[in-house]
C-alpha cells in the first residue's frame, strides 16, 4: 500500500471500496481468490473485526486487514490457501517498526481467517 493510500485509509476518507462486491466481481470473471477477514483483535488494532482483504491467485488485492503492515504476509498465505483449498487462521502482532513509522497504533494483535472462495 502506498504511503498516500495508507494515510487516506487512516484518516477514514479513502475511496469507498466494497471488498465483498469486488470478490463477487472477480469470481464472475473466473478468477480464483481467497478472502481474508479480521476475526478478532486485542489492544489497539488498526482495522476492526470484520475487515476484509480479497486476494486473487496472481496476488492482486483489494481491502485491508491491518492498514498495511501485515498485508504482505496475508497475501502470500492466501496464495497457498487458494492452491490447497484449506482455510487458515493467522495471528499477528502489529507493533513492528514500519507500523510505528506510519503512525499505526502499537501493541495490538489481530487474528485473520483466510479461506478460498469456492
Amino acid at each position: 500500500m502506498s504511503e498516500q493510500k495508507l494515510t487516506e485509509h487512516l484518516a477514514g476518507n479513502g475511496p469507498a471500496k466494497d471488498e465483498l462486491q469486488v470478490a463477487q466481481d472477480w469470481m464472475r470473471e473466473g478468477r480464483n481468490l481467497a478472502i481474508a477477514t479480521v476475526v478478532e483483535t486485542w489492544g489497539s488494532a488498526p482495522r476492526p473485526v470484520g475487515s476484509h482483504l480479497v486476494v486473487d491467485e496472481e496476488g492482486n488485492f483489494e481491502g485491508s486487514v491491518s492498514g498495511g503492515c501485515v498485508e504482505g504476509a496475508v497475501i502470500s498465505e492466501a496464495a497457498e490457501v487458494i492452491e490447497s483449498g484449506e482455510p487458515r487462521m493467522l495471528e499477528f502482532g502489529v507493533a513492528d517498526e514500519t507500523a510505528w513509522r506510519v503512525g499505526l497504533s502499537c501493541g495490538g494483535k489481530i487474528r485473520v481467517y483466510v479461506e478460498r472462495l469456492g
Binding site: 465483498l20 462486491q21 470478490a23 463477487q24 469470481m27 479461506e115 478460498r116 472462495l117 469456492g118
Partner: peptide, 14 residues
Amino acid sequence: MEPNSLVKLNEARR
C-alpha cells in the same frame, strides 16, 4: 466461503 453465500450476502446488503 461458498460462492452462493457471497452472492446472497451481497444481495442482502444491496
